[in-house]
Design a protein around this nucleic acid. Structure first.
Lengths: 137, 137
DNA sequence: TCGAAACATCATATTAACATGAGAATAACA
DNA sequence: TGTTATTCTCATGTTAATATGATGTTTCGA
């Protein structure tokens, strides 16, 4: 469903949410805890920072933190840069002749399913995915 | 949503369904009509034949035909070899700790959405996608 | 029996996703 | 002011999906 890049992003954001603290969290810690290649994760987190999902600080004691409270952060916001998951195609096959105006028998059923997926990512927040308690590093 | 390979497969099957005739249909005709690379499509159709979705015949006047009536052929059957679309992951992130037994807040909502996607592919048939009349080659 | 038309198959090329490595830039702190 | 820990950034490597090209195999029909 999600590309591995998008899944990494989501897992990392979730880790930051579950392990919130005063100081920023190092990439190395997140990478090790989640089993994600460190340099690759570094690039992903940097992109999330550029999107305003995270804040990054450089230098000693640097690292990443959530830019906003988890209940204000939708899964779509985290994932949209890496996966075009919420882009609704009215026709499963991308055919113009199968549109709302001239729909095949399956058109409306597919559209309904597709919209449910979009809605899930749009309306579910990181807080909804959080564990009850922090996970040890 | 679908890989391009799976989309090619679905489009080709649909073309064969809409253009059913006594004689088999050549790969070249399908490829040209749908704008799909011929050799690549040839490989895909061959795989569909091995899965029992199509029948192939070689030699002069050879080609491909649907092996079963379109209303007996689910989209899942066409697509499953190329995309693992209907594999339900109970957790969006593949975490074992987020299962039916120990579910996070979003678990059930995600599972419901995921099952709707599976059901769509399992229960929708090629006949449901067919145009009212045959499309000219 | 031979040639043409078609699928079957193998080898290779291209592209994008995924991943690694090395060094530059930055900030804290002794 | 220098050392160290960290992010930032670029260059490169690897792998899988996608695509192309060339050749083999089968069948029909003159």
């Amino acid at each position: 469903m999600l590309s591995s890049t998008a899944e990494y992003a989501l897992k990392a954001v979730l880790y930051l949410a579950n392990n919130a603290r005063e100081q920023p969290v190092r990439v190395g810690e997140v990478a090790e805890a989640l089993g994600i290649p460190q340099n690759y994760l570094s690039k992903i987190l940097h992109e999330l920072a550029r999107d305003g999902v995270l804040t990054s600080s450089r230098g000693k004691h640097g690292g990443f933190q959530l830019a906003h409270p988890p209940d204000k952060l939708s899964l779509l916001t985290v994932v949209q840069r890496f996966d075009r998951i919420a882009e609704e195609r009215s026709c499963l096959l991308g055919r113009p002749q199968c549109s709302d105006r001239h729909a095949c028998a399956a058109h409306w059923r597919w559209k309904a399913v597709s919209e449910q997926v979009s809605t899930f990512f749009r309306e579910t927040t990181v807080a909804d995915l959080m564990a009850g308690e922090a996970i040890a590093a």
